[in-house]
Design a protein around this nucleic acid. Structure first.
Length: 476
RNA sequence: GGCCCGUUCGUCUAGUGGUUAGGACUCCAGGUUUUCAUCCUGGCAACAGGAGUUCGAUUCUCCUACGGGCUACCA
């Protein structure tokens, strides 16, 4: 019987969670969800120099915001030194690793020499077969040492990547790499293997940048006699210059996208399309869709360039499809007091009118502003174009009079009232519509005028029209 | 430099030993609308190059070019 899949996301807290990391986490999570497995999280903080608690917090926070829940327990590598120590000892005991007394300086010299001579650098293997007594002698004399894995001098190491296919590396290409530093702390390649095994991870899904680490890690698996998991390497997310996406390319961290007001489903939807397709021509998915449709075999090998324009489009499509209730919830999640004084039913009507015109939550909030308070700024070009002179004041005045008499404040009656006024004054309806919109919203565009003022209500509309009468046309 | 990986419109991608090489975003032109957005219609635009295999290669093989990753007592 097949074991249920156990996958993990293993960020190192040396920066915020970026788009690439989010996608790796998402693919792992989707894989687990789709197959009824477990998704674990492990914080790789063995580099004490660069790891920061604030980054761990930020990563956890972003992951939570994205809704990618992980199974307990949450693992911190920094708390697992005992386990690593035990496993290193096994390697030392079974002769698959050795103490290396080379100093950093000696290594540096050897490296430079190799570079000058054009050869490739390998750590000199002079300590590889040192007797136990000699080792003790050096230790007692106070010599510090690292521990290196003994790489077989012959043969090759290969694996069947689920995305890239067979990858084969000659063992002589692999250096006897360090698994424990001279300060006693274990290194990445070693801790990953120990932890993945210990956590029961049977499917490793990670970035393509780890492809060349994989043979090294497989060598550790076999030295430790662990079962080797399956591997799938994901292509990288690139900037427009085809280089790995980073802050240089603008927004790159999940936090940035959140601040810009992108909603979670939109971001996740866009991210998943970078290097994956559903097999159909559909491009818009809910999270549930993704879980059911996700198929790791349909992942691309090529790195995908991040395109903000398309993200924006995806975001707009999600916005349109979302219910007003959900939209309000999302807005309030980041801005709990947003329009707290207004009735929900009114807010819903506003959102319904405006969501079609916005892509991000921020845009939406901004677009809705004049529904909640009288406009303070007025579009200059619109003033010049639509409210040229005093003749407009006359029109508006008549319209106000007509509105005051209106008994039924409905779209239909507003429409009729405006058209009647225009006809009486022998002008086209547009001559009246535009200045009314300007006075009422401060803008030259927006929803249909009659829906707009119907929603605004009689009092507000009249108040804003009268104010328009006061300040327009502009004096020069 | 060495090792590994990749290459279909500008971008995300579909696809096949014989297709008018399909879709989406962007852009452009129309339509709808009082305006904006939405929506609809149409358009521009790609198989990196060279050899080979083959009746026929975008598809298979090799080479080249280009791009990327790794090459740390980082992860």
């Amino acid at each position: 019987m097949k074991k249920s899949p156990c996958v993990r996301f293993a960020p190192s807290p040396t920066g915020k969670l970026h788009l690439g990391g989010a996608r790796t986490a998402l693919f792992n999570w989707l894989y687990a969800k789709h197959n009824g497995g477990n998704f674990f999280l492990r914080i790789e903080d063995t580099d004490t120099e660069r790891s920061k608690q604030e980054y761990t917090d930020q990563i956890l926070n972003s992951l939570e915001w994205l809704g990618l829940k992980w199974s307990e327990p949450l693992i911190y590598q920094s708390k697992r030194n005992l386990i690593y120590k035990e496993e290193v000892q096994k390697l030392l005991d079974n002769g698959r690793a050795y103490r290396c007394f080379l100093t950093k300086e000696e290594l540096q010299v050897a490296r430079e020499k190799a570079k000058k001579e054009g050869g490739e650098f390998r750590a000199p293997k002079i300590y590889r077969d040192l007797s136990l007594d000699d080792q003790k002698g050096l230790i007692n004399s106070g010599q510090s040492f690292t521990i290196r894995l003994k790489i077989p001098s012959k043969g090759s190491t290969f694996f069947e990547d689920k995305i890239y296919g067979k990858i084969n590396v000659n063992n002589k290409e692999i250096d006897d790499f360090i698994i424990v530093r001279s300060n006693g702390s274990p290194t990445y390649n070693f801790t990953v293997v120990v932890d993945d095994n210990n956590m029961g991870i049977n499917y490793v899904i990670r970035g393509e940048d780890h492809i060349s680490n994989t043979p090294k890690q497989i060598l550790i698996y076999s030295a430790l006699n662990y079962p080797v998991p399956d591997f799938a390497h994901l292509p990288l997310i690139l900037g427009s210059d085809k280089k790995r996406l980073s802050k240089r390319h603008g927004a790159a961290s999940v936090e940035d996208f959140r601040e810009q007001g992108y909603s979670v489903d939109a971001l996740l939807n866009y991210i998943v399309m970078l290097g994956w397709n559903s097999g159909s021509e559909d491009e818009l998915f809910s999270l549930e869709d993704l879980i059911s449709k996700f198929d790791i075999n349909k992942i691309q090998k090529k790195g995908a360039v991040y395109d903000e324009k398309k993200l924006h489009w995806v975001a707009g499509q999600h916005m349109i499809r979302k219910s007003e209730k959900n939209l309000l919830n999302e807005i309030r999640e980041d801005d709990p007091n947003w329009q707290k004084h207004s009735k929900d039913t009114y807010i819903f009507s506003v959102l319904k009118l405006m969501k079609i015109r916005a892509k991000t939550l921020n845009e939406l909030k901004e677009a809705c502003a004049y529904f909640f308070s009288d406009p303070k700024d007025f579009d200059e070009n619109a003033i010049i174009k639509r409210w040229k002179d005093k003749s407009v004041n006359k029109l508006i005045n008549n319209f106000i009079t007509s509105l005051e008499k209106l008994s039924n404040w409905s779209q239909k009656d507003l429409d009729e009232s405006l058209r009647d006024t225009a006809q009486e004054m022998a002008v086209s309806a547009a001559k009246l519509i535009h200045p009314v919109r300007l006075a009422v919203s401060g803008q030259s565009h927006g929803p249909g005028l009659f829906e707009l003022i119907e929603l605004l209500g009689k009092m507000t509309t009249l108040r804003r029209l009268r104010k328009g009468l006061d300040i327009f046309p502009l004096k020069r």
